[in-house]
Computed example of a mutant assay.
Amino acid sequence: MIVCSCTGITDRDIHAAVDWMRASDPLTIITPGKVYRALGKSADCGGCMKTFLSTLRGNPNTEVPSQLRGLRRAAQQED
């Protein structure tokens, strides 16, 4: 399915980029900007962002790695 008609990004492109990023760096935080950069593209009009984010969130590899969860809470407790 075409997610972004301005740049020609499909749901498969998004999933492939997410899977590649997670495989290359298991601790990375995956953001829409990183996905665009991995695909060699940039956001244009933003009309696709709702579908783009929904597709991105639908990939289980976008979850924050367990080692990084709760770091903000831990830092606040130290203060």
Rank of each mutant, 00 (worst) to 15 (best):
T31N: 07
N61G: 08
S24L: 02
G58T: 12
S42C: 14
N59E: 05
R37I: 04
C48R: 07
N61D: 09
G47F: 08
E78V: 03
S24D: 08
V35L: 10
K34V: 11
T51R: 11
D11C: 06
G8Q: 00
G33C: 06
G8R: 10
D19P: 04
I29G: 08
V35M: 08
K34Y: 00
R72E: 10
S24R: 11
L39K: 00
S66R: 14
P26T: 11
T62K: 06
R73Q: 13
M21W: 00
G46M: 05
R22V: 04
T55R: 01
H15T: 10
C48Y: 08
T31C: 02
G70W: 04
L68T: 05
S66N: 15
V3N: 05
V18I: 13
P65E: 03
R69F: 03
K41C: 07
L68F: 08
W20H: 12
S5C: 15
M49Q: 12
D19T: 02
T51P: 11
A75I: 02
T10S: 05
M1A: 13
T55H: 05
K34C: 12
K50I: 05
T55A: 12
I30H: 01
M21H: 02
C48A: 11
G70I: 03
L68S: 03
A38S: 13
K34N: 02
Q67V: 06
G70N: 09
T55D: 09
C4G: 00
I30P: 12
C6E: 10
A23W: 07
L27W: 11
C48E: 05
N59I: 03
G47C: 13
D44R: 14
L53D: 04
R22G: 04
S24M: 11
Y36W: 06
T51C: 13
V18W: 01
M1V: 13
I29L: 13
G47H: 13
D13V: 04
A43E: 13
L39A: 01
Q76C: 07
L68E: 09
L53V: 12
T28N: 01
R22C: 09
I14E: 00
M21N: 01
